[in-house]
């Protein structure tokens, strides 16, 4: 009884933090602020899901949280990669080549 009240309070605080992060997401001002906000929002979603899972005793929500954590990480990397190369099909070898060229330019 008491524990579900604690869960509820923590869930409410998380939801409030998510609202603040949404404001930052819309305010920007740069692309990277938004990526950061999306990533932070995803982390909060994962936490909210876990708290929710124990609050209403629904263990399946923890599996969703695990999956969401994985997707959140990959999505962040994919967005950043897309905005650096304007494509998602740059193979690792092409990236390595580009890095080597960059290094040559610097020297």
């Amino acid at each position: 009884m008491i524990m579900s009240a604690v869960d509820f309070a923590v869930g409410a605080i998380l939801a409030f933090a998510m609202v603040i992060i949404l404001i930052r997401l819309f305010a920007g001002p740069t692309l990277y602020d938004r990526v950061l906000a999306v990533n932070a929002f995803g982390t909060k979603t994962v936490l909210f899901l876990v708290v929710f899972a124990l609050m209403v005793d629904e263990p399946a929500a923890i599996d969703i949280a695990l999956l969401y954590a994985l997707i959140n990480f990959i999505a962040t990397i994919a967005i950043l990669k897309f905005f650096r190369y304007r494509s998602l099909e740059v193979a690792l070898s092409a990236m390595a080549l580009r890095k080597a060229l960059d290094r040559e330019d610097e020297e």
């Binding site: 524990m3 604690v6 409030f16 933090a17 906000a37 932070a40 936490l47 708290v51």
Partner: peptide, 21 residues
């Protein structure tokens, strides 16, 4: 123990969000 840890964690989460603002 669980309640103390969770409330502390939630406060840190909120502080981080306010910091982002």
């Amino acid at each position: 123990v669980s309640a103390v840890l969770m409330i502390t964690g939630a406060v840190f989460v909120l502080a981080g969000a306010i910091g982002m603002m």
